[in-house]
Design a protein around this nucleic acid. Structure first.
Length: 230
DNA sequence: CCCCAGGGAATTC
DNA sequence: GAATTCCATGGG
């Protein structure tokens, strides 16, 4: 079982885990930005995306649409919105809930997500889009929990925050970094926040890449298990 | 047929 | 606070 992956060894530090993931998978370039900014997509080794308010808005919508769904489906929903000319807070506020739900149907939970997108768009319209929102401000919005709030702060606004998702919880526990399989969001975030930037990185990018690498690793492991059952 | 995917709110205890 | 349940499509 040792050769399955380069990250299987237990009793290591979080920093060791981050280093091994980086060495195994390389830079991930999250969060992809497809529209209005020259379509960089996954901007590997290019830090500053998103550059504009439109790009930040796109990242925020993606964070809502990808909840408990594959990124593939969330991206399709984003493309549909783009094709309908709806990637703006104003347009999304004016469209009917039913029409919006139909357009984003492919990413699941389409009624809830239509509401989330419209609630967020209303907040966006009355906010200063050049100012970084507080975590509490984001959490106060219907449809935004801790993970989505942190994703927005990290990837849309370049704040120094580690996104502690269920992948991270599972992996940290498997690696012996967490005492309980059911740790709180805060506990997982505290562990992940301990990493230091690798050469050429700042803390913000380290957190961005670490979260993306954890997702990439867990998806890779999942595929290997279901395919060949070794 | 099953389970999972880049979660969160509402309900119940 | 912790444990369930619901939301819903798509792919393995």
């Amino acid at each position: 079982m040792q050769g399955i992956c380069a990250v299987g060894t237990s009793r290591q530090s979080v920093q060791d885990l981050y280093r091994r993931l980086w060495d195994t998978y390389g830079p991930q370039g999250w969060w992809p930005v497809y529209f209005f900014e020259g379509s960089p997509g996954y901007h590997i080794n290019k830090y500053p995306f998103p550059l504009s308010a439109a790009g930040r808005f796109e990242v925020c919508l993606g964070a809502l649409l990808t909840q408990n769904t594959t990124w593939i489906n969330a991206k399709h929903a984003l493309v549909h919105l783009f094709e309908e000319g709806l990637l703006s807070a104003e347009k999304l506020c004016n469209i009917s809930h039913e029409d919006l739900a139909t357009i984003i149907y492919c990413c699941g939970y389409y009624r809830q997500k239509a509401k989330k997108v419209q609630m967020f768009s209303q907040w966006w319209q009355k906010s200063d889009t050049e100012q970084v929102p507080s975590r509490a401000q984001l959490l106060a919005l219907w449809g935004i929990g801790q993970e989505t709030a942190d994703s927005i702060l990290s990837y849309a606004y370049h704040q120094s925050i580690f996104v502690a998702d269920t992948y991270a919880k599972r992996l940290f526990f498997q690696e012996g970094l967490l005492p309980h399989a059911k740790a709180s969001y805060q506990q997982v975030q505290t562990i992940g926040s301990q990493i230091q930037p690798l050469a050429g990185q700042d803390q913000i990018l380290a957190y961005q890449e670490f979260h993306a690498l954890i997702a990439e690793h867990m998806k890779t492991i999942g595929k290997k298990i279901s395919r060949s059952s070794l």
